[in-house]
Design a binder for these strands. Structure first.
Length: 582
RNA sequence: GCGGUCGUAGUCUAGUUUGGCUAGGACAUCAGCCUGCCACGCUGACGACCCGGGUUCGAAUCCCGGCGACCGCACCA
């Protein structure tokens, strides 16, 4: 088992995960469905702890706002955001060999059409274009069935009688954008500010096959950070400016070079490698997060997306990648500069004003020509049409109306003849105190399940033919194991007391009294329990216990009464194992 | 969806070619004994042939269909 484990960690981890209750494929009794997993007791706790780390880093320390919105989303939202158009692909199937191809890719390759062109084409246009260019199956030369769209969002109907289309959200971000006005109010109407949402998202993948890496239902952590594009400087950049980032840049990728540049955050910004300071900041934070869940810096990198790889909303986009045994580099987070794309789309589609107001340092005074309808005269003159005429006058450019009155002695508001007596033309001074604009957004987006998987893979160690899950102590699902050395002579009773005390202190602690002590240590190692507390014969005399370190297997001796304080500090990272006793 | 490989207790697996099973083992789990710090002592218990159909006196084994897994193709905004 262990030699195989070295060959393929993915297999070993999946097996361990099932056996020990980290995660497994859902609905097994009905044969299982791929793309859905159940997190077991250890896994659920580990995932919570990883998400707690995310919250600690972004919510607690940076003061971002956290929200929770619904998964089912009215169709209008994703029509506005562009997902309905972009979350589907036109595909054709060969009549002869049944192979499937992306229709737009075929046109790009054989008809030399740009992806900008194919993007806009309807299915019928695609079919005609395929026929016009005589494109046949690249595999066998056969003809194609009519093209079909594959929508990768889960579609449903909201309510029993309505035919309102709803979608399972493929990202949590839109839940933030649509609530922008309220959230901006809660941020005390100040930029910059950020909102995070950690929740389930759904994507109907055609064929998900890589365990936790590609799921149909998964947990996403979308962070939307709003700022003024005219004040794009990041006030927190100093905190991370000397962090180094390993980046695989787009030009290198185009040249098929493997070259990774290693730059500090400061340099990346100065050299415009990363065009948004806030994006650079969050990339540094993402690196920190991954280190905290156990992935060393040298096994992380950022990869700049090529133009055709980028999401429809993004300008510059980086993926954070982690090296894993089975597939090499896999994406764990995406960092997109979404500009004002989403808020602009929702402004246009909903009619709601999602702009923010920015006061100028000095108010600007302007003199403006104003044409005011005189209601008292309009009424008798136009009777029932008066209201309409007034409206037409208000909407017409003042200069045009004034000029016409001056020159011709009247102004035609459609077919109504407006005379000078009907209006009052004045020069008014207006004071413009500021302007309205749509904030820009940088979005770091983490795949929680992928973070979970890489945490498992980097924790996975084999020591003396035993599996030891070396989770960083902050994310370990179980913090403490409590063991009676033997189950007799009152030692078992004492161990239960110690266990209860530790639970009362708020630790997650497991009591294990079966089997030999070595077996229990081994079992705890597989569950990644950082510390073992063993009650032995000496405990009965002097109230001290041994504390065992999961990673070094060393032991120290400590009085029971000092355990709570020492252990709290240990799990906060303020003490090392050696400091826990003698 | 396509092609290849595969599907036996919680896990790993023997048996499938050549039908004869009351399906064997190991680890894990549970109960009891034993215990003096790293899964290694003893006794016992629990527990499986992916689903459906067919062939046959008899199917884990052969045939067909379905489901699922792994690899490759495609897909992964």
């Amino acid at each position: 088992m262990n030699s195989e484990a070295k060959c393929d960690k993915f297999t070993a981890i999946n097996e361990l995960a099932r056996r020990r209750g980290y995660f497994w494929q859902s609905y097994e009794i009905y044969g299982g469905v791929s793309g859905f997993v159940t997190y077991g007791p250890l896994g659920a706790k580990l995932k919570q702890n990883i998400e707690a780390k995310l919250r600690e880093l972004f919510v607690t320390k940076l003061g971002l706002l956290e929200i929770e919105s619904s998964v089912i989303t009215p169709g209008k939202v994703f029509e506005a955001s562009g997902h309905v158009n972009h979350f589907k692909e036109p595909m054709v199937e060969c009549l002869a060999c049944n192979k499937r191809f992306r229709a737009d890719h075929l046109l790009e390759e054989y008809a030399k059409q740009s992806c900008v062109e194919t993007e806009k084409m309807s299915l019928k246009q695609i079919q005609k274009a395929l026929e016009a260019h005589g494109i046949m199956c690249p595999e066998c030369g056969g003809g194609f069935k009519p093209p079909q769209q594959f929508l990768t969002m889960f579609q449903t109907t909201i309510g029993p009688y309505s035919n309102a289309t709803g979608y399972g959200r493929p990202e949590a971000a839109q839940g933030i954008f649509v609530e922008f006005n309220r959230l901006y109010a809660m941020a005390r109407e100040k930029l910059p500010f950020g909102v995070i949402q950690i929740g389930h998202a759904l994507r109907n993948e055609i064929s998900p096959r890589q365990g936790l890496i590609r799921l149909r239902e998964f947990t996403i952590a979308d962070l939307e950070f709003f700022f003024d594009p005219e004040e794009p400087n990041c006030c927190l950049l100093k905190d991370v400016e000397n962090e180094t980032l390993r980046i695989y840049l787009a030009p290198e990728r185009k040249a098929c070079s493997e070259k990774i540049v290693e730059v500090t955050v400061k340099e990346a910004v100065a050299k415009q490698i990363i065009r948004s300071e806030w994006q650079a900041f969050f990339m540094a934070m993402a690196k920190k997060l991954l280190i905290e869940i156990g992935v060393p810096a040298e096994n992380q990198r950022f990869i700049e997306k090529l133009p055709w790889e980028k999401a429809h909303y993004a300008t510059q986009c980086f993926d954070q990648e982690v090296y894993v045994d089975r597939w090499g580099w896999i994406e764990v987070s995406g960092h997109a500069y979404r500009t004002d794309y989403d808020l602009d789309c929702h402004t246009k589609a909903s009619g709601a004003d999602l702009r923010v107001f920015k006061e100028y340092p000095e108010p600007i005074e302007q003199e403006q020509l104003v044409v005011k309808p005189v209601k008292a005269k309009l009424g008798p003159a136009f009777k029932g049409e008066a209201k309409k005429v007034a409206e037409l006058l208000s909407n017409a450019p003042a200069e045009e109306v004034a000029a016409s009155l001056e020159k011709d002695g009247y102004y035609m508001a459609e077919n109504h003849k407006v005379l000078p007596e009907h209006v009052e033309v004045t020069h008014e001074k207006t004071v413009i105190r500021g302007k309205r604009f749509i904030p820009h957004v940088v979005e770091p987006s983490f795949g929680s399940d992928r973070l979970f998987y890489v945490a498992l893979e980097y924790a996975y160690n084999v020591k003396d033919d035993r599996v030891v899950m070396g989770f960083p102590r902050a994310i370990a699902p179980t913090q403490l194991g409590v063991y009676p050395l033997v189950s007799k002579d009152g030692i078992d009773k004492k161990a239960r007391e110690v266990h209860q005390q530790l639970l009362n202190e708020g630790f997650t602690a497991e009591l294990d009294e079966t089997g030999s002590i070595g077996r229990r240590y081994a079992r705890a190692d597989e569950a990644g329990v950082p510390l073992g507390i063993t009650v032995d014969y000496d405990t009965l005399h002097d109230n001290s216990v041994t504390v065992r370190d999961r990673d070094s297997w060393r032991q120290v001796r400590t009085p029971i009464k000092s355990l709570p304080e020492l252990l709290h500090k240990y799990f906060q990272g303020k003490l090392n194992f050696e400091d826990l006793g003698t």
